[in-house]
Design a binder for these strands. Structure first.
Lengths: 154, 154
DNA sequence: CTCTGTGCAAACACTTTGCAGCTAA
DNA sequence: TTAGCTGCAAAGTGTTTGCACAGAG
């Protein structure tokens, strides 16, 4: 991965920004300077920022922007598929009394978290590149989607 | 999985409750009726509840308990390893501008979320039992632990 | 008897909502 | 011009903290 203009990730090249503008227009969203700035910051940041962090960063070039706008923009971008929310984040803590090996499926609509157990997932191998840098305390396979109840009924 | 006393999961059998008491004592936690009630409810609930939901349920048998106690108890139980917090849950939303296939490692100390990419994880197979019941919109392999910076420095 | 745990209340952090004026198209 | 966006302010939800009393060990 090269530097600033390597084209990999982490820079807001003209091509990327044009694609962004096109995508907004296609979705019926206006291309405002605030939106553009938020998106650019999001691309530049390697570690998935919270709205607050994006806000701090965007303010460096756009001192008048409000946290709400950043929040709303990030949500909009997630909706049109230009960004995404990191799996699982954003809701209240959920507790689990089941200590056996298992995996979770979370319904994005009703927020239920449902256990399942698929043996093949019990022994996910931690890649060497991770094991070398970090202490891994928990490994998980995790699915999100719409559950049976939400799909039918309401 | 059988009914209430099948012994699988979801019931607070005497054996389980005794083991719980032992574990508390071993960790230096007192075995109070509130703690016991919270733990029992957690075992009985199939879908990982938030503190609020546990609270509502515990109140049915313990009308005077406070939400704080439930919260603190759930946290304590997680600390001594008798329960756990569902991966990822509990913090602010995190956003991701990287749409390419990748996985996340989250540092439990500094809350950084770090991308990595391990090809073998890109095509995790969704078990049939899940595919039949749910619409899966996102699949993820996710690790939690302590990152390089937190491990050394502070 | 002692020290931890509980309940209450206030403080905090994050998100959501309503609204008036602004602006991209 | 006009529908959608922004900024501000207030309210909502979930979590944390401090303290006095009560109860487990």
């Amino acid at each position: 991965m090269l530097g600033k203009s390597g084209g990999g990730r982490g820079d807001g090249t003209k091509v990327e920004m044009d694609a962004f503008a096109a995508r907004c227009r296609a979705a019926g969203l206006k291309v405002t300077p605030q939106r553009t700035a938020v998106y650019k910051v999001l691309l530049e940041m390697e570690e998935h920022p919270s709205a607050e962090v994006v806000y701090q960063r965007v303010r460096e070039v756009f001192p008048n922007i409000s946290l709400d706008t950043v929040n709303r923009t990030l949500l909009s971008l997630s909706e049109i598929g230009t960004a995404s929310v990191v799996e699982g984040s954003g809701d209240a803590k959920r507790f689990d009394g089941n200590l056996a090996n298992h995996q979770h499926f979370k319904c994005l609509k009703c927020k239920r978290i449902i256990d399942f157990h698929h043996k093949a997932f019990d022994n996910v191998k931690i890649p060497g590149s991770i094991k070398d840098r970090f202490v891994v305390l928990k490994k998980a396979v995790y699915f999100e989607g719409i559950c049976d109840l939400c799909r039918e009924g309401r």
